[in-house]
Simulated scan of single mutants.
Amino acid sequence: MTHAIETRLVEKGYHLPEAPAPAANYVPYVKVGQTLYVSGQISQRPDGLVTGKLGDSMSVEEGAEAARLCALSLLAQVKAACDGDLARLKRVVKLTGFVNSTPDFIDQPKVINGASDLLGEVVGTGGAHARSAVSAASLPMGVAVEIEGIFELE
């Protein structure tokens, strides 16, 4: 039986990717009791990385789309951590979003809203979360956005 989160993903036109493999010496997630810590997920599509710098080569809307892609990767990691059972996701606790941006760019929260909005849409009331949205002078491989998350599991 398909869980409500996966049903809403499909209804909203989102595709949950396979959980991305780590790009360096770390694990994609760590479970401590009912808390799941997911490592930073970078902005990427099936055909490659979403790169760019907000305030220079990317618009806020393009940045928000990059953040949505990060949120989908976060959910993919949650699903992998729960042995394929996304129904075990009780709530999104906290996101920390990093935006590759110019020194004068001030709309990091609007960019990370792409991820927050998606999680609210598909997780429902359990998608409301604490959050930080900060600027970075650069991010790995030139990606536009990286987001890490903390989740509560059933």
Rank of each mutant, 00 (worst) to 15 (best):
D56F: 10
L49Y: 08
E61R: 13
R45S: 11
Q44H: 12
L86V: 05
V92L: 15
A67V: 08
R88H: 09
L54I: 09
Q77Y: 04
A87S: 15
M58W: 04
L49R: 11
Q44D: 03
E61G: 07
D85Q: 12
L74I: 09
C70Q: 08
S43Q: 06
G55V: 08
G63T: 07
K79L: 05
L75G: 05
S43P: 01
L74H: 04
T51N: 09
A71K: 05
G55P: 05
V92K: 05
D47W: 12
L49V: 08
G84A: 10
L69N: 09
G48H: 10
L89E: 02
A71W: 00
G55E: 05
R91K: 14
V92R: 02
C70I: 06
L69H: 10
C82Q: 11
A71V: 06
L74P: 00
L54P: 01
V93K: 14
G40C: 11
G55K: 04
L86D: 01
V50G: 01
R88V: 06
R45K: 14
D85R: 12
G52H: 09
D56V: 11
D47V: 14
G48N: 10
R91Y: 03
K90L: 12
K94L: 10
E61H: 10
A87I: 03
L72I: 12
P46D: 14
L54C: 13
K79I: 01
D85L: 07
L72R: 12
L72A: 12
P46S: 15
L69M: 12
P46Y: 08
V60P: 00
L89S: 08
